[in-house]
């Protein structure tokens, strides 16, 4: 009975989290232009999507900003973690406290503070200002993912490499980097996701005429969302879902195999 209740509760929460997503996927196949009524099944929005210049431009802006900002954040963040792991606790905690500010601060405050900064620098608002803002809020996600890896690191292997004549840079790439790689990848993926999903900070740091998918959707709210947007979101979501499924099922299988060999070897 308890087991049933637990499963039931999980199902309800799952339904709550995914009902809007299912709704959006269904809407992307709606023949009628408004979301108010169901006009029959149609895949026409998926074709219309690729002819819609402005959506395609917003998509390319979004992907460009997400990719470049998460790459930049991954590099800066990982370098910072190397330095932090060599610092005394006091200095390290100071850095980590500053690093936490964009995480704990409200998006709206981060957004307007960057807007005021760019204005006082006399910068033109456009793709570059969005990019700078996204790098800023992405770095903390990288540092928070990479830093724990450094704590788990065995310092002896790195020092052994140095004793055996490796240069610090060579030893880093051969010894340290493989060990922290899962954290670096997780940080990269998380910041890519955050950049892709961001609206508020982009809203305050974008210029007129430059749109990401989020700001474009926000502008369309009053006059009604174009169905092509539902189609695009469905494509993105399903692609990521399938990719993550493959990535997550593969290691699970590997682990099972490993467990099997371990059992055999113990015999």
């Amino acid at each position: 009975m308890k087991r049933f209740l637990e499963r039931f509760y999980l199902a309800i929460i799952f339904l709550f989290l995914y009902a809007p997503i299912v709704t959006l996927i269904i809407l992307s196949f709606n023949k009628s232009r408004t979301r108010a009524k169901w006009g029959g099944f149609s895949a026409k929005w998926y074709l219309a999507l690729f002819d819609n210049q402005s959506i395609m431009e917003a998509l390319s802006n979004t992907l460009f900003i997400a990719l470049v900002s998460s790459l930049a954040a991954t590099i800066i963040g990982t370098l910072t973690c190397i330095a932090l792991s060599n610092m005394k606790a006091k200095a390290r905690n100071l850095f980590l406290a500053v690093n936490n500010i964009p995480m704990l601060n409200a998006d709206i405050v981060t957004g307007i503070s960057l807007m005021l900064l760019f204005i006082s620098f006399g910068m033109r608002f456009g793709r570059e200002t969005i990019l700078l803002a996204h790098i800023t809020f992405n770095i903390p996600y990288v540092i928070l993912n990479v830093m724990p890896r450094f704590r788990q690191l065995n310092p002896n292997t790195y020092e052994a490499a140095l004793d055996l004549g490796a240069s610090p840079v060579y030893a880093f790439f051969k010894i340290t980097l493989p060990d922290i790689m899962p954290g670096v990848l997780a940080g990269f993926l998380m910041s890519f996701t955050m950049s892709l999903d961001d609206f508020v900070i982009t809203h305050f740091t974008k210029g007129a005429g430059v749109d990401t998918l989020s700001t474009k959707i926000y502008a369309e709210v009053r006059k009604g969302i174009k169905p092509e947007m539902y189609a695009l979101s469905t494509i993105i979501f399903v692609t990521v879902f399938v990719l993550l499924l493959i990535v997550n099922l593969a290691p699970a299988k590997e682990r099972r195999e490993q467990a099997k060999t371990k059992r055999f070897s113990r015999r």
Binding site: L17, I21, L213, S214, F237
Partner: peptide, 9 residues
């Protein structure tokens, strides 16, 4: 995963 469907949508 839901974050891959736009937050506004």
């Amino acid at each position: 995963l839901p974050m891959w469907m736009n937050f506004l949508l």
